[in-house]
């Protein structure tokens, strides 16, 4: 579903991501772990076509992000770490904007908006301006917008930050359900307990380099993910 091969991204002289390769298959929830500034967001942004990278290749469903970014973007959804949405729109206007861009039919979008807004208890607030939303509400709106067009791949940067426990639980269920239907999820997190319980595979990145990748069992062994992570960080 998502193939990252030898990705390198530089900011000036500094290598933010250095020769990173990852493969995310359909049905997988793939966790991406690393300290602040390790290169997680740069990798995620490169994968969804927001950032141009210097070396390597990235493909979504077999299509190169560099050569045909629009086709790639049609099959994925991205939720950033900080949901900076259009403050000048209401929640519902934003959802319709995203639906228009993805070409979702009016009847189909109405049904999905109803379903997900009810799930996240956002229906009553959809008419309010986004500027009046809390961080958590913006995050919920981002999640609803991401699920609107049935993407094959969902890329999320710290998706649980700001969400209340109920919404977090709901999002985890939606992630599992999405992957059970054959989709894939690639997300970064600092909450190692969540990654441990939720992810099928996990990758640990340190100073732009991949230091460990594999199934949860392979990475963790007999230890907890936290112990493995702290041990790798100490090296």
């Amino acid at each position: 579903m998502l193939n990252i091969e030898h990705l390198t991204k530089r900011y000036g002289d500094k290598k933010a991501v250095d020769d990173l390769s990852l493969h995310i298959r359909p049905g997988e929830i793939f966790g991406f772990i690393g300290h602040n500034g390790a290169g997680k967001t740069t990798t995620l942004k490169s994968a969804v076509g927001i950032l141009q990278f210097d070396e390597g290749s990235i493909s979504v469903c077999g299509v190169s992000v560099k050569d045909d970014p629009l086709t790639c973007k049609r099959s994925l959804a991205y939720i950033p770490d900080n949901p900076d949405l259009y403050d000048f729109m209401s929640g519902i206007k934003y959802l319709h904007f995203v639906a228009d861009v993805f070409g979702i039919r009016a009847s189909e979008r109405a049904e999905k908006i109803r379903k997900y807004a009810d799930l996240f208890e956002m229906t009553g607030s959809l008419g309010d301006p986004i500027s009046a939303y809390s961080h958590g509400m913006k995050q919920k709106l981002s999640v609803i917008a991401a699920w609107l067009h049935d993407p094959k791949l969902i890329v999320m940067d710290e998706p649980f930050v700001g969400l209340d426990p109920k919404a977090s639980h709901l999002l985890k269920e939606m992630m599992r359900e999405h992957c059970d239907k054959g989709g894939a999820i690639f997300f970064s997190t600092h909450v190692l307990e969540v990654a441990e319980k939720l992810c099928d595979k996990v990758a640990i990145i340190k100073q732009g380099k991949l230091v460990k990748v594999g199934t949860m069992e392979e990475v963790r062994g007999d230890d907890s993910l936290e112990e493995v992570f702290l041990e790798l960080e100490a090296k």
């Binding site: 519902i92 228009d100 979008r109 607030s125 959809l126 309010d128 301006p129 009046a132």
Partner: peptide, 13 residues
């Protein structure tokens, strides 16, 4: 925060 009760409306794509 001009609270506005959301009422679903038919929209055209």
């Amino acid at each position: 925060a001009g609270k506005k009760r959301y009422a679903e409306k038919r929209v055209r794509a």
